[in-house]
Design a protein around this nucleic acid. Structure first.
Ligand code: MN
Ligand code: MN
Ligand code: ZN
Ligand code: ZN
Lengths: 152, 152
DNA sequence: TCCTAATTAGGAACTATTATTATTTAAAAA
DNA sequence: TTTTTAAATAATAATAGTTCCTAATTAGGA
């Protein structure tokens, strides 16, 4: 599963622009870390990104990967998925989208739905706080896990 | 914030029934741990529950709290909220409901919405897997954090 | 090119969670 | 009721994910 090159280019351009505007340095490490997460459709965790980035930058440290990722989250270039029992996963897809999460294997798949994007915030929620985003998470069993289950 | 006594009784009764049916022992520890999480509206974490249960059972161990909580999750008596940067939080509210999450302080508040409960699963999602539940998460800033912010 | 504040690598530390094991106990059987 | 025993617990050690510390390096401005 690879992203289309044009979209990757768009993301990389936004990355450079955003870091410059924020006045933080564009280092090799940050560039390669972002390229890696921005290329993936898998919502990878920090450890996975670390392993992949190390192929290009063999001396990079895990700490740098974490620092870079949280910086990018703060800058609005990434979001995170909290998968409970699991480690944190990162998502470079900043378009309005939703997730299907497999309750067996944890696989997390994006999907788009214009109706979901425009769900009206109920009035009673406005008493709780000021809503900024609405996201739908569908839990279920993915195809692969379903097939595995059927085959005992 | 306390739960209404009737609802707590209902939850406690279901707890006993569920454990019996599953053939697992109803221990003091499990009882008090469940009572604690079932009494709360705050989505507490394991450490918080541990501290509170220790008032009644001073020798209980944190490990027991975790084991009991995950058991109850497996038995369908609790769910968890994965709050990313944070520790796991547990939820004894098993009715169909949704969450408002404050992006500043992490406060997580239940709300109910019949419309959200019946959101139709988009067709394209059926190709990803078999959906079992749909939950909406609204992120934003809670009233308290908003007031704090205004007061500089 | 030189300078310097920002960033990094590496390893130690920290925190949430889980495993190990000897002891205790719930609840079934007698 | 007492006995029996598999299940559950407390205490502590171990893991795993993440963050902190510090000396060395570097991006980018002067
Ligand atoms: Mn996504
Ligand atoms: Mn809830
Ligand atoms: Zn799966
Ligand atoms: Zn808040």
């Amino acid at each position: 599963m690879q992203i289309i090159p044009d979209e990757l280019d768009r993301r990389m351009a936004l990355f450079e622009k955003t870091l410059k505007e924020a006045g933080v340095k564009i280092t090799h490490q940050r560039l390669e870390i972002f390229r890696e997460v921005a290329s993936s459709l898998n919502h990878p965790d920090a450890e996975t990104l670390f392993r992949n980035v190390r192929k290009k930058l063999p001396t990079i440290s895990l700490d740098t990967v974490y620092r870079a990722l949280w910086l990018m989250v703060d800058l609005g270039l990434l979001t995170t998925l909290g998968a409970s029992r699991d480690r944190t996963r990162f998502d470079a897809n900043m378009e309005s989208h939703h997730h299907f999460v497999c309750s067996v294997c944890g696989m997390t798949h994006d999907f788009y739905d214009a109706g979901f994007d425009r769900l009206p915030v109920p009035e009673k929620v406005m008493e709780i706080g000021k809503a900024e985003s609405v996201q739908v998470r569908i839990k279920g069993i993915c195809m692969r896990c379903m097939r595995k289950k059927e085959a005992h």
